[in-house]
Write a protein that binds this DNA or RNA. Structure first.
Length: 571
DNA sequence: GCCGTTTTCGGCCCGACTGTTTTCAGTCG
C-alpha cells in the first residue's frame, strides 16, 4: 500500500470520527498522521520492513499497527467498522463548503437527508429553516455551497496558479491604501498544484482594502468579507483569499499565510515551549503579552532560534530539525542554471529552428543548449530516421560556426523500446554530445517490466539522462509503476542523470522523488522539454521542484560549466 | 491518538468570519 492511500484512509477515519463527535484531539491526531505520511519522502512499506514507522512524527503504537495491518491486508478493520456506523449521507454532506460535521448530523438526524441533491430540494422549499440554529441565511448558504461544489475548480497546475495570481496582484496593486502585496500560501511554497490563491497585503486601513477587493471586476462571488479578511470566487472559478495586516505584522502574517499548516503548527509549538505565542500579528511573550517580533519573517524565526527557512521547504519535512542543527541546504537558484538540455526543434515536433532556439537560449543568459529531437519510432512526434538525424547533426555544426556566445549541443531524445534497447544504433548515438532516453509507450505494462526497461537502457553507456522518469501528465494520466529504488541505485552506478521536467503538466520527477534521488547520490538535470522557444521559460518551474526537493547547485548537472558538463557526458 | 532534559497524565496552534446568538458555536484556513 502506498503512502497516499494510507494517508487518505487516516483522513477518512478523521472525517468519520468528526461525524461521530469523537474526541477532537484524537481526530487531530489522525489528521496529523495523514499529513505526515503523505509528506514523507520514504516509502511506507520500506519503513514498515525496518520497523521504524514510529519514527514518523505523529505515529505511535496504535497507528503504526494500523499501518502494518493495511500494508499486509490492504484493509483497516477499524475504518471498515466506522464506515458501518456512520451513514454515507453524512459523509456526502460534509463535502459541501460551509457544512461541517455538526450541520451534517443535524440534517441527517432531523430531516433524514439522503444526499446532496435531496438537500438542495429541501433548501429550495425552505424545509431546513426552523431547525435549531438554522434560519433563512443558513439555508441560502447551503444552496450556495452546493452550487460552489460544482463551480469551483479542481486544483490548478502551478503555472496556471502563477498566471491567475499575476492578474489578481496587478488588479489589487491599483487599490487605494495598499502598501505591500505578496502572494502567499501553497503558491509561494511552489507546490506542484494549487487550490486557492492567497494574497497578503499590508495597509494602515485594512477595511478599506477588503472593501475594494470584493468589488474588483474579477469577482464573481463574494464568499466572505470582513475587516481584515475576505474571500472571493473569480470568474474562472478560482478562490482568492485576501488577508490584510498592518505593516508591523507583515513578517508574522507572511509566515502564517504561507504555511504550510503543518509547518505553522510546528513553529507555534516550539514557541509555546519557550513561553511565546506566535500568531499572524507577531510573536508575543505569553506572560506579559508583549510583542517581541513581527516585522520580518527572519525576525519571527529568530525568536525560536531558527534561521530563515525558504518557503519551498516549509512542509514540516525535516526543515525545522535541519534549521535547529544549522543544516539547511543552500537551495539551487534559477540563476545557477547554465543551459537547457532537453529542447525540441522543427526537425521533429517543435516549432522553431535550431538557430532561433540557440538565440533564445543565449538571451536567457545560458552557455549551452541541447537540441534533442525524437527518434524514429515515435512517428506521432515526427521522430527522425537515422539518415535525417545525421543531417540534423550537420545543421547543428553550421549553427555553432555561425553563432558566438552559445554552444549548441547535438542531442537526441531516443525512445526506449519494449526490451530496453534504444531506437538508434550505437554508431549513430556515438556521434552525439548528449543522449536522453525516454519511455513513450506501454505505460500500462507491469511494474517489473517498466523498471527493467529503464534499467537496461541506463546500462547502455551512451545514455546520459532519463527524461520525465515516471511519465505522468497531471490531469491526464498518473505516473507509471516503477521500482524507483532500483532506478536510483542504477542511475548512480551508471552515471546517468534523472530529469526534473519543468513542463507544467509533468514536473517529473516530482519533489518527493527528486529528494529521494538526491539522498541516494543521483545527479539530476532540470530541463524544459520546450517545443517552442518561449517554453524555455518553464525552467523556473523545474527549479522550484528542485528547491522543494532540497537540491543544491551541486546536485544538478546543468549548473556545470560547459567543459565540466562535457566531461560528465563522456562518463 | 500522540507525546514528554520539569510530566506516563494532562495537555494538544491560533484566530477570522458568519449566523444565530444575548455570549457563542460552527466552519474554515
Amino acid at each position: 500500500m502506498k503512502n497516499r492511500q494510507i494517508s487518505e484512509i487516516f483522513n477518512a477515519i478523521a472525517d468519520l470520527l468528526e461525524l461521530k463527535d469523537d474526541n477532537v484531539f484524537k481526530i487531530r491526531a489522525y489528521r496529523r498522521a495523514a499529513m505526515n505520511v503523505d509528506n514523507l519522502s520514504e516509502d511506507i512499506e520500506v519503513l514498515a520492513k525496518e520497523s521504524s514507522l514510529e519514527k514518523i512524527p505523529g505515529i505511535g503504537k496504535d497507528l503504526a499497527a494500523k499501518m502494518i495491518e493495511m500494508i499486509d491486508t490492504g484493509k483497516c478493520r477499524y475504518y471498515e467498522e466506522l464506515k458501518l456506523e456512520v451513514p454515507q449521507a453524512m459523509l456526502e454532506l460534509i463535502s459541501i463548503p460551509g457544512v461541517g460535521p455538526k450541520t451534517a448530523r443535524l440534517l441527517y438526524n432531523k430531516l433524514g437527508v439522503k444526499n446532496i441533491n435531496e438537500l438542495a430540494m429541501m433548501a429550495k422549499h425552505h424545509r431546513i429553516s426552523g431547525l435549531p440554529g438554522i434560519k433563512d441565511k443558513t439555508e441560502e448558504n447551503i444552496l450556495r455551497g452546493i452550487a460552489l461544489v460544482k463551480k469551483r475548480q479542481e486544483r490548478m497546475t502551478l503555472k496556471e496558479a502563477i498566471d491567475v495570481a499575476g492578474e489578481v496582484v496587478s488588479a489589487l496593486k491599483k487599490m487605494p491604501g495598499v502598501n505591500n502585496i505578496t502572494p502567499a500560501g501553497s503558491l509561494r511554497r511552489m507546490r506542484e498544484t494549487v487550490r486557492d490563491i492567497d494574497v497578503l497585503i499590508t495597509s494602515a486601513k485594512p477595511e478599506k482594502v477588503t472593501g475594494a477587493f470584493v468589488k474588483l471586476p474579477i469577482v464573481k462571488d463574494v464568499l466572505a468579507h470582513g475587516d481584515t479578511k475576505a474571500s472571493i470566487l473569480s470568474r474562472e472559478g478560482v478562490q482568492v483569499d485576501l488577508r490584510v495586516v498592518e505593516p508591523d505584522s507583515f513578517g508574522a502574517a507572511l509566515v502564517y499565510f504561507t504555511g504550510s499548516q503543518a509547518h505553522n503548527i510546528r513553529i507555534r509549538h516550539i514557541g509555546k515551549e519557550a513561553g511565546l505565542k506566535i500568531n499572524e500579528y507577531g510573536v508575543f511573550n505569553e506572560k506579559s503579552g508583549k510583542r517581541i517580533a513581527g516585522k520580518t519573517e527572519s525576525d519571527i524565526y529568530k525568536t525560536i532560534k531558527l534561521p530563515y527557512i525558504e518557503p519551498e521547504l516549509r512542509e514540516d519535512r525535516g526543515e525545522v530539525e535541519a534549521g535547529l542543527k544549522g543544516a539547511l541546504p543552500k537551495l539551487i537558484k534559477l540563476s545557477d542554471i547554465r543551459g537547457d538540455l532537453h529542447v525540441h526543434s522543427e526537425w521533429s515536433d517543435g516549432s522553431d529552428s535550431i538557430e532561433d532556439l540557440a538565440m533564445a537560449a543565449k538571451a536567457l543568459g545560458y552557455e549551452y543548449i541541447a537540441i534533442t529531437d525524437h527518434s524514429e519510432s515515435l512517428k506521432v512526434a515526427g521522430g527522425l530516421s537515422e539518415k535525417e538525424v545525421l543531417k540534423k547533426l550537420e545543421e547543428i555544426r553550421k549553427v555553432n560556426k555561425k553563432l558566438k556566445g552559445i554552444r549548441v549541443l547535438a542531442g537526441v531524445e531516443v525512445d526506449i523500446l519494449k526490451d530496453g534497447s534504444l531506437d538508434y544504433k550505437d554508431d549513430i548515438l556515438k556521434r552525439f554530445d548528449l543522449v536522453i532516453a525516454a519511455i513513450h509507450t506501454g505505460f500500462k505494462d507491469p511494474k517489473d517490466k517498466l523498471t527493467d526497461r529503464i534499467l537496461v537502457a541506463m546500462d547502455n553507456k551512451r545514455v546520459n539522462i532519463i527524461a520525465h522518469p515516471t511519465g505522468r501528465l497531471m490531469g491526464i494520466r498518473g505516473p507509471y509503476e516503477l521500482y524507483l529504488d532500483r532506478i536510483f541505485k542504477n542511475a548512480k552506478e551508471a552515471g546517468v542523470a534523472l530529469e526534473i521536467s519543468s513542463f507544467p503538466e509533468r514536473l517529473d520527477l516530482d519533489d518527493v522523488n527528486a529528494r529521494a534521488a538526491k539522498d541516494r547520490g543521483v545527479k539530476l538535470a532540470i530541463n524544459t522539454d520546450a517545443h517552442i522557444a518561449e517554453q524555455m521559460n518553464y525552467m523556473a518551474l523545474g527549479v522550484s521542484v528542485a528547491r522543494r526537493a532540497w537540491l543544491e547547485k551541486e546536485d544538478v548537472i546543468n549548473t556545470l560549466s560547459l567543459d565540466a558538463l562535457l566531461k560528465f557526458l563522456k562518463k
